[in-house]
Every structure is written in structure tokens, then in C-alpha cells.
Design a binder for these strands. Sequence first.
DNA 1: TTGAAAGCGGTACCAA
DNA 2: TTGGTACCGCTTTCAA
Lengths: 352, 352
Amino acid sequence: MSKSRRENPTRVTIKDVAQVAGVSVTTVSNVLNGRTEAMTEETLQRIQETIRVLGYRPSSVARSLVTKRTATIGVMIAEIETAVYLQTLNFIEPIARNAGYNILLSTTTHKRDDEKQAIELLLENQVDGIVSLSTSTYLDDDYLAQLPPTIPPMVLFNRSVTHDRFDQINVDNTNGVIRAIDYLVGLGHQQIAHLYGPKSRISSLERLEGYQLGLEKHGLEYNEQYVRSGDFETTQEHWEQSTQQLLDLSPRPTAIIGANDRVAAVVMRTAQRAGLRVPEDMSIIGIDDQPFCTYLNPALTTIDMSIIEIGKRAIRMLLERINRTRTTTEHVILRCPLIIRESSGPAPSAAH
Amino acid sequence: MSKSRRENPTRVTIKDVAQVAGVSVTTVSNVLNGRTEAMTEETLQRIQETIRVLGYRPSSVARSLVTKRTATIGVMIAEIETAVYLQTLNFIEPIARNAGYNILLSTTTHKRDDEKQAIELLLENQVDGIVSLSTSTYLDDDYLAQLPPTIPPMVLFNRSVTHDRFDQINVDNTNGVIRAIDYLVGLGHQQIAHLYGPKSRISSLERLEGYQLGLEKHGLEYNEQYVRSGDFETTQEHWEQSTQQLLDLSPRPTAIIGANDRVAAVVMRTAQRAGLRVPEDMSIIGIDDQPFCTYLNPALTTIDMSIIEIGKRAIRMLLERINRTRTTTEHVILRCPLIIRESSGPAPSAAH
DNA sequence: TTGAAAGCGGTACCAA
DNA sequence: TTGGTACCGCTTTCAA
């Protein structure tokens, strides 16, 4: 009998609240949205009480349908397995949440179609904006360019997009490495080697360029033997071997800049096992400034890729566009400061 | 003139497609949902073409409203800053995506209210299921227990919930540490110390218990001096000091089990700087099996907390509940295997 | 101060 | 084989 009132155990809706509280749905909607100024204290109370008692939770799906805002931001993270960009979520999420947005996460490989699919998915989900944290491959941007003007704002990290439809963030890889070379040369290093990443990545090439420019700047000769490339997916052995080859050279390099912090860690270990002291006999510099740098012994000097800053900036820029605080595209280039820790020091005395 | 056809630059809807293709919305909906068996090849073609030309993207918001499925899964990650659980996203996301689900991310501190809010938010967003990856604090589960039966399935990691309303995953901290002790004792270690984490965490206490049980099992005496606690938020100095105090003890411990890999890394560095060789003079074992373990020198032996496995299991269990492949609650306890690497070895000869 | 009703963009039932 | 239409749960004019 009494059951007949609640036929099926379906979710409680705004109608239920209205009915129980004896008001119209409009009124309930008003209190939901804080339009309570012109409202009897009594009805307000009654409605709030009803909401509480019924355990009513407004459906953001229904709301989104009419407001055309989902209050969610799509974050695309490429090649997430490196866990490098993943860290930025720590900073992106709270900022987004404080601004009233949820994060819809999308991980992609750096394959073109995969990325396209991810964007499509986010668009179908009607996200209010997109942050794309990709790796620096030469993804062609035809797809991006062809997207209709109705899509939500988007900020791109690490893309070499030519048109200025989207906000962009890039990182000054070249100058980051140049500064590292400045620092090493200032410490008396003359034989500086560089183990760099996959040639398919823009960042690798930019860093290699920085390496060459840096040497040139100080009148040092570019020696092909001092430079080796490798894939990040490969095992540690590859980098061990590369390091060993570097160590076998004569003159042996007194400083090595790794492709990233993990590579630098392998370099460090290999050098140490070969009987070299770091930094007395060999200075080592990484790239990224991953949290584990400070846990190595000695703590790793590194070029800070400002991963965290990238995340924060990206979400803030996006929020500006969503709220129309800013209406023009912006392209920011973040500098990469050198973080000097323990793995680098004066070059060993010339007479070695 | 021709503009009058498209009054406002609003999103193209299913109606537009139907109109342009000269069919009803039902028909369009049918092709959208793959109900194309009983359909003229010609109309199908025409509709698909129209969809392409118009750049039509179905609104998942509108769809969700009627189907009551959002095809998204909420993932709550507590204390995300440790980046430990963040890694699981690498594995959760692809599995979810393959199953047709998006990930709505929610990070929380381990404060109770914060968590409650996060759940509320996910529920408002009508997620189809929730994975909660919390730290092991003694969160009371009143809130969870009181949630209405209409909420979507939820799998809890690291919660000591008494009722069995939700699927749960836990990790066998105690036996993990016991196995480490077994291993060390087998290697001849008699003085084994343990630096453990915050006393407010269940995991810390379970591990301490494992430590005590392990000693007991092998007839070793529990020595209070061999045991120290600390916060994960504190600086490395705290753990350095604790380690130093351990090193100053007589007899000095020949093995130390850290509260986690980072603590173990600090222990290792401190020991090395005190002139001890690892593992010849001192064995060191971490907990978690973070990726950086293999980058330390020597590579860190550790108790694997199966972070990745947790993520995979959690999402799979959730999917089972969502698809009703399974209708009973499940409580799985993952074992923590010992990963033996280079930082542990035989105890130094008795005559030290 | 509160209420009625249209409509957001789809789905699905029932007809034709 | 295809179409008409009620409805999902909410917001938002416009009236009362």
C-alpha cells in the first residue's frame, strides 16, 4: 500500500523534491542555484530539508544538457607511461576543481589516430575545454586545423602548430641545454658528451641543437663521438653501453648530459661502477627534474623541464579562455632553469 | 540570404542530420547505434555521408540523460602528491577505455570531508562506477555505509570497512614484511631495523606488526631502538637522522627496512656516506617498488606493493559489477612479493 | 514570491 | 524499413 507512492526505486528527481515540499520545480531549481533572495525563509527551509531527507542529488547530466556546460575539462596525456606528465595532474586537478571543473582523463600514445580519437571522445563528452599534454613528435596539425570553430578552447603543449588558433605552451629546450653547457664550461669542462633521446622527438633535436650551439658559443669543437642517441623505451642496457663507449674514449669526457633523468641515472651508475667518482671525476646532468633526482647519490643536477609549471600554466590559460577573461591566443615559452645539485662540479685537473 | 538557413552557429544535432538527409531522427539514431541490419544500403550511405559533411558529433550528455549511463568511471585518488597511485592511471585508463568508459579523475587529501565531497561530486556526475584508491588512514565508514542503495558500484582500496556492501582490495602488508625478514634472516642477518611511516596509517602499523611477527618467528628479540617512525611529508633530513641514529647503535643493524622506497633511498645514501658499502656492510630494503628503484646504485631490493596490479584489479572488478557479470561482493587481498635486487645480500661476517 | 510549460539532444516505443 | 512522439531531469522565460 504505502509502497504505491514510490513505484520503482529510481533516483529521486527535482520533481520528487518539489512534490514532497509542496512547491514547483522552479522553486526548487531556484534554491539549487542560489536564487534565494526573493524567497520566504520558510519555503527555503522546507525545500532544503526535503532535499536532505530525500537524499536528493541534482543530475549534472540533465543540467548540462540545458546549460551546455559540463563543468569538465578534458586532459589528454600522451605516452603516459613515462609518468612524467602524470605528475602534473596533481596540480591541474586542484586548480580545476577550485574553479568548479572536473577532469576527464584521456591517455594516448603518440600515434596520430589515437590522438584524434581522444579528441573526438572529449568533444562528444562536451568538455568545456581541453588541455593536450603531448610528447614532442612531429604530429601534423591538419586534424587540429580542420576542427570546426564550435569546439571548446584548447591549450596545446609541445606542439609545433603553425596557425594560432590555439593557445600553446612550449619549453625552451635549446637554451636549457646551452645554459648547462655554460655552467659546465665555467667549471672548466672541455670534453662534454651528450646522450640524447629518439630522433623522432622535437625535444631531442632541440636539445642536440642546444648542445651544439653551446659548444660553439664557447669555441669548443663538436665531436661526433661524444654524442649518442637512443630510445626511451629501450632497456637500461642500451644506455649503459653508450655510457661505456663514452668512458672508453680518449680523451674521456669529463661531463655527460643525459637525455633525461633516468638516462642520467644510468650514466651515473655506469660511471661509478667503472670506478669513477661523481662529480670529482665526472659531472653528470639530467633533464626533467623528476622527483627521484634528489634520492640519487649524489643528488642529480638537472635541467628543469618545469613539468609542474606547464600543468599549472596550461590549466590557467584554459580557464581564462573558458571564462573569456582573455580572447586572444597566447603562446608561452617556458625557460628551463638548471637545478644544480651534487652530481656536477669542477672538471678534474687537466693532468688526469 | 543563404545564411538564413543556419540562423545561429549552434552545434549540429541529430535533427539537422535527419533533415538534411531527408529521414527521421529515429533512423539517424539507428545508424548511430549500429542498428543498420534492416536498412537500405542507400539510406545508410546517405546518412553517414551527411554526418560526415555536417561534422556531426552526437552529444553524450543528451544520450546519458535517457540511457542513464554516462560511460564514465570515477577514480578517486587520495594523497596524489606521492605519485604512487598516480601510476596506476596508466593501466586503469586503457582498460576502462577499451571497455568503453572514460575516467573522471578526483584527487583528495585523506581528510574525511574532502573524500565525502569527492564522492558527492562523482555521484552528481552520474558516473557508472567508482574506484577509490585511498591511503590507509582510519577513515570511518559511516558515510559510506549511509549511502543510498541506488549509487553505482564502487570498489575500495585500502579501506578497513567492516560491512560488505562494496568490493574491496587490500594488500597484505604484514606478510610482505614477514617475507622480507625471512629473506634477511636466511642471509644471516640478526640485527634488523625498521624505519616505518606515520602511525596514523594502517599500512604503517601492519608493517610494524609484520616486522615484530617476523622477528618473533625467527626467535629474534624485538629491540625498540631498532625501530623509528616518521612522516612521509617530512624532509629527507628526518630520515637521514633516523638512519644515523641506527648506524650509531651497537651492535649496529646489518639490515634496514625502509618505510617506502624513498625512505630506503635516503637510508642507502646515508649509509654510503657513512662509509658503509651496500649491500656488503648493510642490506637495505624498500617498500612499494617504485620505478626509480632500478635507477639507484645499487638497485633497491623492495617489497612490491603491486600498485599496478591494484589498479588493474580494481578496474576489472568494477567492470564486472557494472556489467553484472558478478553480483556478489568480493574482497581480494593482494600479496606483496619481495623483489630482490642489489641492495641486499649476506650479513657481514659476525666478526665485524 | 511562486508556478506552468517549453525545450536541451538524444533514445525507444509503437505505428505505419 | 522508416517515422512520430513521449520522455529523460533540469533550466529558463513568462505569467500569475
